[in-house]
Amino acid sequence: MTHTARPTRPEPGTPTAAETPDVPETPDTHALEAEALALAGAVPDPELPQLSLADLGVVRGVARQRDGVTEVRLTPTYTGCPAVETMAEDIREALSARRFGTVRVVRVLSPAWTTDDITDEGRRKLAEAGIAPPRSGGPAADGPVPLSLAIRCPNCGSVDTELLSRFSSTACKALRRCTACREPFDHFKELL
């Protein structure tokens, strides 16, 4: 039995069970995986601590292996994201209780993470922290440029905002300015 954090796109973050041939299914394994998934998902993001890893949609699942190893699958937002190693360390620490045995965090690239994996709760927390959340995209169009919906200023709510730089304090953010209240702000830019 494997716990998968993101089995299908429509319901990110909903734990469901999926069969794997090599791990015997026992109620204990199932409960342990669910518990490990909840603990790993509750770890705060190192760069955006307002969000948990579950909010960000980067914990792909937990599987208890035959040899007693608890394997957590983690996907990076960007391939070069330096926070991934801290995330892995924080997950291992969160699962340090004996019942989880050895904890192994494995990096998975496929399917590639998109900003649509950020939960509604995650988007709400971003806006609360003064970071404009990414616009939801549906199927990828032709790169990041074609999106045309306005980006709302997280400070005053105006949709009259302009791009200052495509890259900001982290790879996942762009720097914008509100032309109404004149405040600069970060925008979690779309990656679809």
Binding site: Y78, T79, L109, S110, P111, A112, W113, T114, A140, G143, P144, V145, R166, F167, A171, K189, L191, L192
Partner: peptide
């Protein structure tokens, strides 16, 4: 890797 990185490369 290509499927992941192509999105970054677009930027």
């Amino acid at each position: 890797l290509a499927a992941k990185a192509v999105k970054e490369t677009a930027y």
